[in-house]
């Protein structure tokens, strides 16, 4: 059997001097949607950032058989890892179209996705093609940042709290979008706090607490395990 898309082993991560991750182990297979759950501050976002090379870390992160630790973020992106940060980070002064163009890693890149695919998925973006990103609504910005990352043709996409602060209807839209992405064989790591969307679309889930993984299983397993939910998820 070939190695999964992403294999994280004994990952320790640091924010400045504070030790945030204490030996995280996690795997994501080809075309799999995996959720990483947990309360605020347990290290979910830091895990994603460590994969992206944005925080100091040690241990091992292997992606398609290659070690990522020690590489620079742009290098990691070019290997096929996409990252959608929690604050969305669209470029506010640039138009929707320019934001999408920046998602492409080179001018001549031919990936799985074209600008027209994005506009077909989210017609709203087509309508607002020449509008500066900064004036879009929260939901539109979330679509834009998802599409922007897809334009880079990643094999794995890590999405940090895509539904935060969005209306239920938009959350639904984001969910069906992720399903659509998965259909094309792209693996997804969904970093979430909300249980509902994670149970709905994931194949497997991890729950984090105090910088390591405290639960691993299918949505059905997590539904059955009230103790884990009580201790690590519910407020």
């Amino acid at each position: 059997m070939s190695e999964p898309m992403l294999v994280i082993r004994d990952l320790h991560g640091y924010y400045g001097k504070s030790h945030v991750l204490h030996g995280v182990n996690l795997e994501i297979g080809q075309g799999e949607i995996v959720s990483l759950l947990g309360r605020n501050g347990v290290g979910r976002s830091t895990t994603a950032k460590a994969v992206m090379g944005m925080v100091a870390a040690r241990g091992s992160i292997r992606f398609k058989g290659q070690e990522l630790l020690g590489r620079k973020p742009h290098d990691i992106a070019r290997l096929g890892v996409g990252y959608v940060p929690e604050n969305r980070d669209i470029f506010p002064d640039l138009t929707v179209k320019q934001n999408l163009m920046l998602g492409m890693k080179s001018a001549r890149q031919k990936g799985r996705w074209s600008m027209d695919d994005m506009y077909a998925l989210f017609p709203r973006l087509k309508e607002r093609e020449n509008t500066p990103g900064g004036v879009l609504s929260g939901g539109e910005q979330q679509m834009l940042t998802l599409c922007r990352t897809l334009m880079g043709d990643p094999d794995l996409i890590m999405i940090d709290e895509p539904t935060e602060g969005l209306a239920p209807k938009i959350v639904e839209l984001v969910g069906s979008f992720l399903k659509e992405v998965e259909k094309r064989g792209i693996s997804i790591l969904l970093v979430e706090q909300k249980l509902a969307i994670a149970l709905d679309i994931s194949e497997r889930l991890y729950v984090m607490g105090h910088g390591h993984i405290v639960f691993e299983g299918t949505p059905a397993d997590l539904k059955d395990n009230e103790a884990v939910r009580k201790e690590w998820l519910e407020v």
Partner: peptide, 25 residues
């Protein structure tokens, strides 16, 4: 130009530009 677009974006959010696969350094 494309490089101009990358420069404009990197003016405000260099980390994000780098995460999209552009060699910001």
């Amino acid at each position: 130009t494309r490089i101009g677009l990358i420069i404009q974006a990197a003016l405000s959010k260099p980390d994000m530009v780098q995460a999209l696969g552009h060699d910001v350094p």
